[in-house]
């Protein structure tokens, strides 16, 4: 095949590749969550910066469960972690969740497929703030699965979440 034709083919395929690699629009507001690592869709320097509006566009889910640090049953709203990872084309074994206070926990991505793990932005109808456990809180459906009522899952409830790194 002559070189010239190859070049033409490459030019034709280029927009498709670009579209696949970067379907994300740039965030309009301040980013609430930054996702980096092994993801297909990025919008800023090999990372995906997501503002409140972009996160709100993900399918909404509700979850009622008790936690190990609060009283009674709380109602959480947010999106499923696996929906986010799918949207970003994430592939890997673990997700390192990093909080504002530099708390870093590696969570097996299998968790998000085995359970409906929620990234909550409201608790009992009120938006989570950085002064409480916001802006985002990883919540496991603790009451629905007895095996999740275990300290080995409790440490994966990362609050003040602001970064994810897929490995």
């Amino acid at each position: 095949m002559p070189r010239r034709q190859l070049l033409w083919l490459a030019l034709l395929l280029l927009p498709i590749a670009q579209a696949a690699a970067s379907p994300l629009a740039a965030p309009e507001g301040p980013p609430l969550l930054k996702v980096s690592g092994n993801i297909s869709h990025t919008n800023k320097a090999n990372a995906a910066h997501l503002d409140r509006a972009m996160l709100a566009a993900l399918p909404r889910h509700e979850l009622e469960t008790s936690t190990s640090v609060t009283d009674g049953v709380n109602r959480f709203e947010g999106f499923l972690m696996r929906d986010l990872l799918e949207k970003l084309g994430a592939e890997g074994e673990t997700a390192a969740a990093i909080a504002l206070n530099d708390y870093l926990i590696e969570i097996p991505i299998a968790d998000f497929h085995d359970y409906d793990v929620l990234v909550a932005d409201t608790m009992d109808g009120e938006a989570l703030t950085p002064r409480d456990k916001g802006p985002l809180w990883i919540v496991y459906p603790r009451d629905d699965h007895r095996e999740l009522q275990d300290i080995r899952y409790d440490y994966r409830w990362v609050w003040q979440l602001y970064r994810l790194e897929i490995q």
């Binding site: 190990s68 640090v69 009283d71 504002l100 206070n101 002064r131 409480d132 609050w159 003040q160």
Partner: peptide, 17 residues
């Protein structure tokens, strides 16, 4: 931001359990 984090930790200590 650090005050927010401190707030968060102390609010946690203020929670029921």
């Amino acid at each position: 931001l650090r005050l927010d984090v401190l707030f968060s930790r102390l609010m946690l200590m203020d929670e029921g359990p």
